[in-house]
Design a binder for these strands. Sequence first.
DNA 1: CTGAAAGCGCTTACAG
DNA 2: CTGAAAGCGCTTACAG
Lengths: 368, 368
Amino acid sequence: MSSITKTKSRRAATLADVGRATGVSAMAVSAVLNGARTSSRISPKTRKRIVEMAAKLQYRANATARALATTRMNTIGVAVAFGSGNEELNQYFLEIFNGILDAASRNGQTTTVLTLSSWEGDTERLASFCDGRIDGLILVTPALLKGAVKSLPNHSAFVAIHTNRPLPGVLNIETDDGRGVYDLICYLISQGHRRILYFRGPHGQIGAERRLRGYKRALAYAKIPFDADLVADGGYSIGQGKIATREYLARAGGRPLPAAIACFNDGVAVGCLEALAEAGFRVPGDVSVVGFDDTVAARTTIPQLTTVRQPLRAMGERAVDELLAHLEASRTGKDARLPAPVIFPVKLVTRDSVAPPAGTQGGATSAH
Amino acid sequence: MSSITKTKSRRAATLADVGRATGVSAMAVSAVLNGARTSSRISPKTRKRIVEMAAKLQYRANATARALATTRMNTIGVAVAFGSGNEELNQYFLEIFNGILDAASRNGQTTTVLTLSSWEGDTERLASFCDGRIDGLILVTPALLKGAVKSLPNHSAFVAIHTNRPLPGVLNIETDDGRGVYDLICYLISQGHRRILYFRGPHGQIGAERRLRGYKRALAYAKIPFDADLVADGGYSIGQGKIATREYLARAGGRPLPAAIACFNDGVAVGCLEALAEAGFRVPGDVSVVGFDDTVAARTTIPQLTTVRQPLRAMGERAVDELLAHLEASRTGKDARLPAPVIFPVKLVTRDSVAPPAGTQGGATSAH
DNA sequence: CTGAAAGCGCTTACAG
DNA sequence: CTGAAAGCGCTTACAG
């Protein structure tokens, strides 16, 4: 009884097992089941017997043996840091990840996720995955320390999406954040706003800096003088946005609110909305609020957020395509130099969280 | 120029490369770098040279070759379905996952995540990972169809945490849900409640059924007659909890609220709180609300939720331990039969969302 | 105690 | 067109 189960589950069937059971050579089985190249003309009858026997024995090509022979695992890794308190990562990550999954399976690759607790402390874990088990690695929002970049195994292929710093030897996939915020602020200005508070993102993070520059460029374009008091740290999460807004309101005391608040991302904007509601302000009646990213959160708030959409899914797909192309190139000895960073366009999404400044009548006549 | 980079990144260093560069045999290198068994006494001097050369060449044992030789990948897979709309999964999953990561690294295993879009549709993907790349697989909250269970490769080892149905041939790790809800309801009764609405979880899900039975047992124990009108479908998410509560309130018309509402999980409870606030009810003044799971959500609501805590981290650790023990047993030919399901105890966590029923004075005197 | 040999399960040229 | 041979990079008995 028990021994039956045991023998059965002891070992997975091999090519040789299937061959023996069918009365053909292991290569014949390989050709039928796994062979793309050697599609030799095995008689349909034999082929059928092989396929049936393989199914019966639950044969599945051993991935490690195949990888050893071909030096390809046909697997791409996706590295992401699932630290604490980043509930928002989920939605953002999921959208990218779906693009990755799609593109990978379309190319016959499987996908595996490498979860780090933090980018700063876990580079060893990152490197330990570059030991043949994956062909290449996509880093999603890596926040690597400078030294860590060097310790990445240099025989492996990497693509980074939204990196905190440009990674040498790694293809970087970015969005045109600066343009996104520029468009957003121009839109606010077109609605009649001139006093626009900006809750900026983390210092030193490349995307956050680009967004801040977008804000400044839009003001400059509209000839609105830059006022340093109208830029504050907003963090990157709902909680931080809430706190930042509360603190701003406290600092402002009784002085009038800025006419509009532009937030680093949707998370911060949601926190901002919560804090404003707490303090009794209505959006967009008393103040307009805009976010960035167009996560689901942007559609579930009341009012729905005006924000900027990044093509996350397409970025995930592109990451896979670039990674595979790079692997192919370096395999065939073609020029495997990395292309320049890929910058994806963004799109303004107007919803209900923006209205002309209080005291203004309707329309879009104003500014410069 | 470019060619330097190219040769450098063409191929990872092998044992033979390191040996050649150091002037020793590949086995010597293997013994020094990877060998636990063959800790032959290589002279400290040679050992040092080997270690240094390995570092210089960025040597890392090829995982596929090693796995082929040892039939161990030293990697355990964690399967989870990241469908749409399960933001709550994150916190729950993360806690289990941290336990898994810990236990795995403590045992010298690495961990990889297999993300399914859905349990029902993605069993092929599940099976395709059992091809040598992992030694065993931990299924987190699997919701497998009956047929799918059979198609799991029978030469692989599985452990399931919170499965929707008992999986034959798979060790199931559960919590004592029934007891948790029983304790919760008893606590409500001890506070003077008798009319307790229960928002039950998904039909057919084994845990949801156990929780419902816990509710009924507690009523029976307190000799409170069961009233079918006081059980309603609550779903399992914030959104569903909100809708369920709204619908209940609408159905109830002007009739008095139940004194307390027990929810399938914290998500539903959060939705319930939102709907109650919408309708102008105060918690716990007008009605008491309790959840289940003790996710962070339970601590971020106002009032904080009384709920039941599951030892998620410990469960993740246990899953790894059991999986490794099972693998070891089947390797050494010892009896590899699976133990009975492991049931973890739960713990009542009392916070601020419960008060004696409206119109009652203070204390805990009442019921049976 | 240390090296040469065999083998893990595949695939890919290479002879028949 | 189809089999036998060699090899991917490791580890593990097995001789010296």
